[in-house]
Deep mutational scan, measured.
Amino acid sequence: MALNTPQITPTKKITVRAIGEELPRGDYQRCPQCDMLFSLPEINSHQSAYCPRCQAKIRDGRDWSLTRLAAMAFTMLLLMPFAWGEPLLHIWLLGIRIDANVMQGIWQMTKQGDAITGSMVFFCVIGAPLILVTSIAYLWFGNRLGMNLRPVLLMLERLKEWVMLDIYLVGIGVASIKVQDYAHIQAGVGLFSFVALVILTTVTLSHLNVEELWERFYPQRPATRRDEKLRVCLGCHFTGYPDQRGRCPRCHIPLRLRRRHSLQKCWAALLASIVLLLPANLLPISIIYLNGGRQEDTILSGIMSLASSNIAVAGIVFIASILVPFTKVIVMFTLLLSIHFKCQQGLRTRILLLRMVTWIGRWSMLDLFVISLTMSLINRDQILAFTMGPAAFYFGAAVILTILAVEWLDSRLLWDAHESGNARFDD
């Protein structure tokens, strides 16, 4: 018995066209964080690309023209004298008006014999932002004059995390709450300039795509075929072959399989920071003279006294001054041990922890910024005066060393310790 099946006739004509040209192939790229070699397709503007294995951002879609970056830099340069030299806060102490600005706080630190601690604050609040705007201006002028731009481009990517104007702005709020127990506070004209400078700096850093600047100024022929001998440069993120001198053909720094002496430098910085954190938390970090009496505060006791007036601000200072430094030390110690013992479990967790400490590390400088600003506000000789204690130097040095330890660690070593050939990683 035959089955009668109805015929289905399409209502619209289906047209099949042959592909007349070869589909576009992607360029081969190595991930600078996990060293995976993959094919990167062509990316349009405002599109980002991520590593298929570790999800690290390979290409950032946010990109401004150099002219727009230069305009932002010149605007920031105009704001800087007002943000640093004009009063941020006014207080009335014992019937006398006192003005506080950024430069005055750094000068008070240096004047009291601790120039190293003052230079830490100076670099993060004044030096690094000033280098940022002058570097962008150098790129703008240098591109037109045919100057060598490689050193500036190499420095810009590392400079971003040292620009800490946003953290200093939080420190202004913390210092205001600490001082309000002794005097009446009012915002100064410099505060508005400083807030504007923070906003412009944040926007500029978020749109400063150094890798795209490398592509514009020093374009290189990408690798179009897969080759395990391809290496990625950690300076400019170019994937290719080393030249005859073993250097990256684009930025001219040595092109090595792994960062040289990464573990040794990381261990040295980490152990030194552990040693410095002990006096930083045991010795007094601030000293207040009130009517001839002397009151010393460690980091913890200062947080407890701050909690009596504002528990939320005390929580912020606790996280930045105690929780973050010790968390960074514990995480980095764990990561280094996992590399030495070739741990194969929990790779995803370790990668996330490394990215976390990379982002939060700079916030530990908050305590030094609060001390710097408070020193310029309260300084009335023996009637009422505020000065920093010996722990300030140890704390600042420990924070900087932990930042350097994270920067010096080559994250690809975590993958080397893991089993080879993993296309995915999980716990």
Results as ranks from 00 to 15, higher is better:
residue 332 M to V: 12
residue 5 T to C: 10
residue 276 L to V: 11
residue 187 A to D: 09
residue 164 M to C: 06
residue 249 P to N: 12
residue 295 Q to K: 10
residue 61 G to L: 13
residue 29 Q to A: 06
residue 408 W to E: 06
residue 325 P to W: 05
residue 425 F to Y: 15
residue 88 L to N: 03
residue 316 I to K: 01
residue 89 L to C: 05
residue 72 M to Q: 07
residue 263 L to R: 14
residue 43 I to P: 03
residue 115 A to F: 03
residue 388 M to S: 08
residue 313 V to G: 01
residue 353 L to I: 15
residue 413 L to H: 13
residue 294 R to P: 02
residue 14 I to S: 09
residue 395 F to H: 12
residue 210 V to K: 15
residue 297 D to L: 06
residue 134 T to N: 12
residue 184 H to K: 04
residue 406 V to W: 09
residue 318 F to Y: 10
residue 126 I to K: 15
residue 94 L to I: 06
residue 205 L to A: 13
residue 111 K to M: 04
residue 207 H to A: 15
residue 382 Q to E: 03
residue 249 P to M: 14
residue 106 I to Y: 03
residue 103 M to K: 06
residue 169 L to I: 11
residue 375 M to R: 05
residue 82 F to R: 05
residue 395 F to L: 11
residue 419 E to N: 13
residue 233 C to I: 00
residue 66 L to M: 14
residue 289 Y to E: 01
residue 62 R to H: 09
residue 406 V to K: 12
residue 393 F to Q: 07
residue 83 A to W: 02
residue 192 F to C: 06
residue 361 G to V: 05
residue 53 R to W: 06
residue 301 S to L: 03
residue 111 K to G: 15
residue 218 Y to P: 04
residue 190 G to I: 02
residue 14 I to E: 10
residue 29 Q to K: 11
residue 279 P to I: 15
residue 2 A to D: 08
residue 221 R to Y: 13
residue 78 L to P: 10
residue 204 T to P: 05
residue 338 S to D: 07
residue 402 T to M: 02
residue 80 M to C: 07
residue 206 S to V: 13
residue 262 S to L: 03
residue 388 M to I: 05
residue 55 Q to P: 10
residue 226 R to K: 13
residue 129 P to Y: 04
residue 88 L to K: 02
residue 317 V to Q: 00
residue 30 R to E: 02
residue 93 L to T: 01
residue 135 S to V: 02
residue 190 G to C: 03
residue 97 R to S: 13
residue 394 Y to D: 11
residue 407 E to V: 11
residue 77 L to A: 12
residue 359 W to I: 12
residue 277 L to C: 11
residue 194 F to V: 10
residue 96 I to R: 07
residue 44 N to F: 07
residue 193 S to E: 02
residue 79 L to A: 03
residue 56 A to R: 09
residue 18 A to F: 10
residue 405 A to D: 02
residue 101 N to D: 11
residue 127 G to N: 02
residue 308 S to P: 13
residue 47 Q to D: 09
residue 127 G to K: 01
residue 313 V to Q: 00
residue 146 G to I: 03
residue 293 G to M: 12
residue 409 L to G: 04
residue 373 L to Y: 04
residue 191 L to E: 07
residue 424 R to I: 06
residue 176 S to M: 12
residue 74 F to V: 07
residue 86 E to D: 06
residue 421 G to N: 04
residue 198 V to S: 14
residue 390 P to L: 06
residue 52 P to H: 02
residue 303 I to Y: 06
residue 145 L to C: 08
residue 347 L to D: 10
residue 17 R to G: 09
residue 149 L to I: 09
residue 317 V to M: 01
residue 50 Y to C: 06
residue 68 R to V: 02
residue 252 H to K: 10
residue 178 K to H: 07
residue 420 S to C: 05
residue 423 A to M: 10
residue 310 N to A: 10
residue 56 A to L: 08
residue 321 S to M: 02
residue 217 F to M: 15
residue 20 G to S: 06
residue 254 P to L: 03
residue 219 P to M: 10
residue 74 F to T: 09
residue 300 L to I: 11
residue 343 C to R: 13
residue 287 I to M: 09
residue 281 N to R: 00
residue 347 L to V: 12
residue 180 Q to A: 13
residue 395 F to T: 03
residue 361 G to S: 09
residue 348 R to V: 13
residue 160 K to R: 14
residue 18 A to K: 07
residue 262 S to I: 03
residue 300 L to G: 09
residue 81 P to V: 04
residue 203 V to Y: 09
residue 132 L to Q: 04
residue 368 L to G: 08
residue 131 I to S: 06
residue 347 L to K: 11
residue 342 K to H: 13
residue 313 V to A: 04
residue 74 F to A: 08
residue 137 A to N: 13
residue 374 T to Y: 08
residue 84 W to M: 09
residue 271 L to N: 12
residue 26 G to S: 09
residue 372 S to Q: 05
residue 320 A to D: 11
residue 50 Y to M: 05
residue 4 N to V: 06
residue 421 G to L: 11
residue 287 I to G: 03
